[in-house]
């Protein structure tokens, strides 16, 4: 299939040079990607309880959602988990990235690299390990345990994104700052941190989204506090689902559109050419 997408010319060609198959395929791909999204948005305005027959326009499921204390508390819990995880993992992950990029001794580098193992560990392993660790210590499962597990999972993601940015930055700038009399810490604060800011935004955005949507880790480590939204949705799907879920999905979609637009716009406002999105995609 891929073979037919071969262009006869390089990139940056004008519109007429586009291979029609590749474009059509991509359009179809995006269409299929959006089919369930359209269904979710459409049925969130359904006047009937049905999830397959559209009865007419209504906002009753939004009213249900905004009046459903259970759903709202789950939403708040997820927002709280994502925000705290994002902040903590950015701090720890950036430290790890800086250290990994600069540390010289082999034991320290091995330690740092071991810290990246969660990246290549399926979530279910991390989830099982976290569950056994917390219950083994007699810790009550709660939002705190979810957050600890999510941070453990997120640090390595932040580290690789930030590290990608660091490795493209030349050492000379920092050396120059040192020559001008900066302490290592000042050089870090005044030179390095501003440079990696887009990477931090990108990492923050990614972690927020991944953690907000994460189900497996949350499922294993959640306790008596309001369940994270993903866990609640899962148990509703397994049992009896309310169309209010579609309203929740539509709101989440709106927020993600907003966040992604921000990630495109904010770096530009800060006078940078590269958007945070480029950093997520590695571009």
């Amino acid at each position: 299939m891929a073979s037919e997408t071969v262009p006869t010319t390089g990139r940056r060609r004008s519109v007429e040079g586009k291979p029609t198959f590749a474009v059509a395929f991509t359009a179809l791909f995006l269409f299929v990607l959006y089919v369930p999204i359209v269904v979710v948005v459409l049925f969130s305005f359904n006047s009937k309880k049905s999830l397959s027959v559209f009865g007419g326009f209504s906002t009753r499921w939004y009213q249900d959602f905004f009046n459903d204390e259970g759903l709202l508390s789950s939403l708040r819990a997820s927002l709280f988990i994502s925000t705290v995880t994002m902040l903590c993992s950015i701090v720890l992950g950036t430290m790890l990235a800086l250290a990994l990029e600069r540390v010289t001794s082999r034991p320290a580098r091995i330690t740092g690299t071991v810290a990246l193992i969660p990246l290549v560990t399926p979530e279910i392993v991390t989830g099982v390990a976290a569950l056994l660790f917390f219950t083994g210590l007699g810790m009550k499962l709660s939002l705190t345990t979810v957050i600890i597990a999510e941070i453990t999972f997120s640090i390595s993601y932040v580290a690789v994104i930030v590290r990608g940015r660091l490795s493209s930055m030349s050492d000379e700038v920092e050396e120059a700052a040192r020559d001008l009399g900066c302490t290592p810490f000042q050089a870090l604060r005044l030179v390095v941190l501003p440079t990696i800011l887009p990477a931090l935004i990108a990492a923050g955005l990614l972690i927020f989204a991944l953690v907000f949507d994460d189900f497996i880790l949350a499922f294993f480590t959640t306790g008596i506090d309001p369940q994270p939204l993903s866990v609640r949705i899962y148990s509703e799907i397994r049992m009896t689902i309310s169309p209010a879920i579609n309203a929740v999905g539509t709101c989440m979609l709106l927020v993600s559109v907003l966040l992604i637009s921000l990630s495109l716009v904010v770096p530009r406002l800060l006078g940078r050419k590269d958007s945070s999105l480029d950093l997520i995609s590695g571009g």
Binding site: E69, G70, S73, L131, T135, G138, M139, K140, L141, G223, I224, D225, P226, Q227, R232, S235, E236, R238, M239
Partner: peptide
């Protein structure tokens, strides 16, 4: 009412034995 749900009795018992 702070509501949490289970989808089976065994899972419910596991959560309570875990100290929830």
């Amino acid at each position: 009412i702070v509501e949490t749900n289970y989808d089976g009795y065994a899972g419910m018992l596991a959560k309570i034995q875990a100290g929830n």
